[in-house]
Amino acid sequence: MIYFDNSATTAINKTVLDTYVKTSERIMGNPSSLHFLGTQASRLIQQARFQIAELLKVDEQEIFFTSGGTEGDNWVIKGTAIEKQSFGKHLIVSSIEHSAVSASAKQLEKLGFEIDFAPVDSRGFVDVEQLQALIRPDTILVSTMLVNNEIGSIQPIKAISDMLEAYPTIHYHIDAVQGLGKIPIHEWLTERVDFATFSSHKFHGPKGIGFIYWKQGRKLAALLNGGGQEKGKRSGTENVPGIVAMSRAVRLHLEDEDLKIQKQTRLRDYLIDSLKTFDKITLFSEANAEFAPHIVCFGIKGIKGEVLVHAFEEKDIIISTTSACSSRAHTAGSTLEAMNVPNDIAITAVRVSFSDQSTMMEVEKFLTTLKHLEQKFSKIN
């Protein structure tokens, strides 16, 4: 089987899985307990926190554990709204955000907050000038993703950060779920980024665990109350094996980061160049430094994306439509809609997404299969 749906989820690294299993077997204590078993578990959590912070070149006090990207996005969006509502009730999110961000914003809208969706250009990049034009005296948050999960466009974080220097009271959040190991994350966290969201299963870690970067000095209301874990900011008994395994996944994923990025870039560029030779292919991703190295989005005119996904599945090649969330809903991705791609073209879109384990041989087999499928569909049409 060829697995090209790594933007949806990655296979857990065997070493990471071994860490998860051994920690589950050996560390039985509740980290909040006073006895030595609790202390043992608590120490492992702090070691994991320190290791992740060191790898991202931030302070360990700025790492908070969550259950994944969705919780992290919900926490930052809603936590900012709760914490800062006395200063304003206006939030800005980009029009190409993951549903964890956009749905959170829409829920807040029902509670009396005002939401503006910053537009993107025809290539899928946030328009910084138009974003700035949306800022008001009562704006409390701007949220943009780092890497778009549908077409791979790397958002202009530095330009947005520079613009937001003039607005120091506004929280700036980035959804960095698709970025770790694909672009040097620590470079973006040195900009004017207050919060960033990460999810373990996107970088060969276990599902159900993640973390947020929370810049010191910024305030965020807790969403989960109870036992006071995570310095009272995120209550709930900690997922010790998940946290420990995730910290190892971060370390392993960032080993030889440059080489892994170069490898995936070569695969992306070769695939895109090859797709350009097909007659009925529409490309939504590009082969340049403005796009992530692991995502290629395209469509075959007249063929719905879900039909192509299942056709490849019959050949033991796993791809997806534009995102896992829109796949189940049978809808075109929000990114293509925001780019003003006509619906009859948008619904043809499929996404190929690599990992550092993907190979050129797999890409070659994918292209051979695509050629046969295109011929088959042409005869049917």
Rank of each mutant, 00 (worst) to 15 (best):
L164I: 14
L164F: 06
Y172T: 00
A166T: 10
L180V: 08
Y172R: 01
M163I: 07
D162A: 08
T169S: 05
D175V: 00
M163S: 09
P184N: 08
I160R: 05
D175F: 08
A159G: 07
I183F: 01
M163D: 05
V177E: 14
M163Y: 09
D175W: 04
H171A: 04
A159F: 02
H173M: 11
A159S: 06
S161W: 13
I183T: 12
L164G: 13
A166Q: 02
A176S: 07
H173E: 11
Q178F: 15
G181S: 06
T169R: 02
T169I: 07
P168E: 08
V177T: 09
G179S: 11
E165D: 08
G181V: 10
L164V: 07
A166K: 04
I160S: 09
T169L: 14
T169Y: 14
L164M: 13
Q155R: 09
A159T: 13
I183W: 01
H171D: 15
D175M: 12
I174F: 09
T169F: 07
I157K: 09
H173W: 04
V177H: 13
H173Q: 03
A166S: 15
I183H: 05
A176C: 05
E165G: 05
Q178R: 06
E165I: 04
A166Y: 15
G181N: 09
G181R: 13
L180K: 15
Y167I: 14
P168I: 12
